[in-house]
Design a protein around this nucleic acid. Structure first.
Lengths: 194, 194
DNA sequence: AAAAACATACCGACTGGTCGGTTTTACATA
DNA sequence: TATGTAAAACCGACCAGTCGGTATGTTTTT
């Protein structure tokens, strides 16, 4: 059976997410990850070429979940999609919340590491394009006010990212789910045709 | 003269900003900083207790510039303040742009390091309070529409941070100064009373 | 001459990664 | 079903290099 192999691999990934999130990419050593996963260093390097390769694997997994989420919301109207975004915030804050520092690390590493940058920027541009197209569709349909779809898409992404960042810095400083819901609604209202 | 001493100190800080920005806190070693500054390790540890202490000094310097900027915009009306924010964007993107990765690093470290967190979160809360008060003032004066000042303040900070983050990831993906100016204007329009 | 500023050699801890050897698995054969 | 065997999976000691930090000595300033 190759079941054991897959189990080991997922144990490594699980521990890596946990430790990268809590300590950071640099501070979490390969030894730490192996110890947490309860496997040996040999097993680690059997499954992953390097520490960076593991990092990239984690990044891929994350991007995949975003792709899935986008795919699931296709064929929806623009306002409906954004409403769903609003509804999704509690879920995002709960599930992504713990791993948020790691996603930030992706971001930061991307600005310094060519390989990671290439793996990150292409999906980012794809997402932006998706949002911009969606907004343009909404404008054409008459449900959104006249505006620059490109700028509006950046604005929406900014809001989501900025809220997550603020919640990361000061988790107990506000009821973030509530703030996220209300500010997204606020933003959405400014887009919708009056 | 204590002039030489101060020169050494500022040389260290200069090199630290440069290397922390380009390589990150962990990847930039004390030796690297010393080499870049053209001084010895002894000199380094004469001026700073530890690498973390240097990091905190850099953080303090950054927060000071924000404080100064806020202080300079006081006694202005709320809409005027936000208009000035818009005007300031090109400057921000130019000056902060290069050091942005380091500021992100502050953010990230703050979520993991108690000391750095305390040094970061207090100013953050102060800034948020300032914005919220400003918005409330604008509402009371009748220039802003009815809204939750707290949420609106988070939204504004989110926008600024999110834009900076996006520009960090994909500097050549858009004309960020233009996007920032337009989306801030968009946001401001949604606040102003119609 | 006292003190502050700086230089240099050095330390133990830890890092990512390697390597020879061992165990487990998958599969063909009988 | 039992058995032999090659490959895949895994182990853990080990390596060379780097890290932040220190101890001690030298130069410069006051």
């Amino acid at each position: 059976m190759q079941q054991r192999s897959e189990e080991t691999r997922s144990k490594i990934i699980e521990s890596a997410i946990k430790l990268f999130s809590s300590r950071g990419f640099n501070a979490a050593s390969v030894d730490d990850i192996c110890a947490d996963a309860g496997i040996s260093k040999g097993a680690f390097y059997h499954h992953f070429e390097s520490k960076q390769a593991l990092f990239l694997a984690l990044l891929d997994g994350w991007l995949q979940t975003i792709d899935d989420a986008i795919e699931a919301s296709k064929d929806k109207s623009a306002p409906e999609t954004f409403m769903r975004m609003t509804e999704a915030f509690p879920y995002i804050f709960q599930s992504a919340g713990n791993h948020l520092p790691m996603y930030m690390e992706f971001w930061l590493q991307a600005s310094r590491d060519e390989k990671i940058w290439q793996a990150t920027v292409a999906p980012y541009r794809r997402y932006h394009k998706y949002f911009a197209t969606l907004i343009k569709k909404g404008i054409d349909e008459g449900s959104f006010a006249e505006m620059n779809p490109d700028v509006a898409a950046r604005l929406i992404v900014s809001t989501a990212m900025g809220l997550l960042l603020q919640s990361l810095l000061d988790p107990k400083g506000a009821k973030w789910e509530k703030v996220a819901r209300e500010s997204t609604t606020m933003l959405l209202n400014s887009l919708v045709k009056k």
